[in-house]
Amino acid sequence: MASNAESAEKIMLEYKKQGSPLPFVEEVLVKVLDSIGSGWEKGDYALSQVYMSGRICEDLLDKYLPDESEQRKNKPKMSIALLNDYHSLGKKIVYSTLRASGYHLHDYGRVEVEDLVENIMEDQVELVLISVLMFPSALQVKNVVNKLADYGCNVKIAVGGAPFRLDHRLWREVGADAVGYTAADALHIAKSFAGGTE
């Protein structure tokens, strides 16, 4: 892992000679992470590789494009949460991938329905990414959607995690606006909700 991180940094420093690290983000990191994420879906890569590559890229970008940087993408205003479960790998992978791609997002950590709704209302986010592992947790998304509707909140909700990968109709049944099966999908979702052309 250390040698991969060093190689990635060398490439980045070449780009940085031209000024901002952003071209490196757009031309290299986003494409690499997209390709690895999609590769997992096809069975070309394992989840451990998706996780480690996301971590390397995130560490690199944190070094050269810290959270407070004005060059971070603040659109859409978004957050990520793990609902009910304690299995946080999926959320971490998506969080790392988005941050390594230059996005800024709030991490609510592991939350239950009430706390999640409260956080979303308070932060007035435009897009929330909800990760789950267990089937009952996936069904809890419906409660989040209903409570937010009761408050008249029109945040967009994207979901991801094993139950949604196994049942491609489930995300609609729980009332989500989008589903991501891979970290690459999360990138596309963020881009589309930012008003991009995805």
């Binding site: 892992m1 451990s48 996780y51 971490k92």
Partner: peptide
């Protein structure tokens, strides 16, 4: 170990 220490910490252990 996924339950003992969390998945991400475990992958860090395997590879690190």
């Amino acid at each position: 170990p996924v339950m003992q220490m969390g998945f991400d910490a475990y992958l860090d252990l395997i590879y690190g």
